[in-house]
Simulated assay, not measured.
Amino acid sequence: MRDTTAGAAVRVRRREEGDLGAYVRVLAAVRDRDGHPVDWPAVPSAGCSSRRAPGAAAALYERLRWTLPATVEQEWGPDRRVAVRAYAAPRPGA
């Protein structure tokens, strides 16, 4: 996929297993800046495999006893709609 942002060409490619360390570092930097995700795993790379990421995220939420109150459809661009699973954290002390 190619895009142009402020006159600079941007190339986006599929993540590869060798990218995992840098990927986790970027996620950690985002978490430090924005506070998301709130619950940081002890081994952040464990669920970040490019082959397992979507299922691993759902498994993590479910293991932490989050509930799935809704799956909603979002528009991610022209002619592209995706199903997004909306999880809710358990109440504190529950």
Score class of each variant (00 low, 15 high):
R33H: 03
W66V: 14
R11H: 05
V72N: 03
P41S: 09
P92M: 05
R31D: 02
R25M: 02
P54Y: 03
G18L: 10
R13G: 10
S49K: 14
P69L: 10
C48Q: 08
G18T: 15
A88E: 00
V84T: 10
R85E: 05
R25D: 04
A59Y: 00
S50L: 12
R25A: 03
A94R: 10
V84S: 02
T4I: 12
Y23N: 03
L27Y: 02
C48M: 15
R63P: 02
P41C: 03
G21W: 00
P69E: 01
D32R: 13
A86S: 06
G47M: 05
A9L: 14
S45D: 13
R51E: 04
R31Y: 03
G18N: 12
V38G: 03
L64E: 13
G18M: 14
T71P: 04
D34T: 08
T4Y: 02
S49L: 08
P92N: 05
L68V: 09
Y23T: 09
R52Y: 01
R81N: 00
R11T: 10
H36L: 15
A86M: 06
T4W: 01
A9R: 10
G47R: 04
Q74W: 11
A28N: 02
R15D: 12
R63H: 08
A83Y: 08
P44N: 13
D39T: 07
D34V: 10
R80M: 11
G18C: 15
V72E: 09
L20V: 11
D34G: 08
T4G: 09
R65L: 07
V38R: 06
A8D: 15
G21Q: 01
A8M: 12
A28W: 02
R80H: 14
T5D: 07
E17G: 01
G7R: 12
